[in-house]
Amino acid sequence: MTKPVIEVEALAKSFGDNEVLKDITEKVEPGQVIVVIGPSGGGKSTFLRCLNLLETPTSGKVAFEGQDLTTLDTKSVNSLREKMGMVFQGFNLFPNMTVLENIKLAPMKVKGTDDAAATKRAHELLQRVGLDDHADAFPTSLSGGQAQRVAIARALAMDPKVMLFDEPTSALDPEMVGEVLNVMQELAKEGMTMVVVTHEMGFAKSVGDRIWFMADGYIQENNTPENFFAHPETERAKDFLSKILM
């Protein structure tokens, strides 16, 4: 058996008195697509941010390819973080740079890739997300769907081993959700390991390998999509599904 890409053990995170994550122990295997669903405020974003240490866990262990991140120094954390691409609900493109520059920045400044190579790679990625004709545009001129696809291309430019998505389509107009989900589906097909927080149940069903249902600071249920949607095991999940599927 291969080593898990991500291993979380007894992870807990509090903000002051607010215990957001209480005790989480899970694994992500290579090539798996994990879909995290759950009620708003249940700690999904916090969980995702603990995986690449944007948020420092209060206790517990987060390991990437067998290496415990919580014990590493800042520099090693920085270099491990580039292996975990992250896509945000709000895109977070750099507004003062063109699309191409957004994608080239990290490879050039972090990896030291030269300009020509970075440019070539950026164009490849833009073609992959269908936006090469927008290479010289500034982010403000893009639609939400286009911006999110650029953000995905930007994360991919660091050649990550795993991609973390935090509600990538929640800020989009409905007609643009599809173009982003298509790109994500392509990625999954190519074998990318992914952890996706989303409310898109269709995507969860068709692309997800496992559903992690998260509420009240715990992963309440870890199930296959078929079972989770047809026969949820916990009351909490049943309750949640009945509300969103109405």
Binding site: N52, N78, E82, N92
Partner: peptide
Amino acid sequence: DDGQTEAARSLGMSNGK
């Protein structure tokens, strides 16, 4: 916006960069 810092950090950029 804090999101800018988060995006940059998630790409592996150090605090200084």
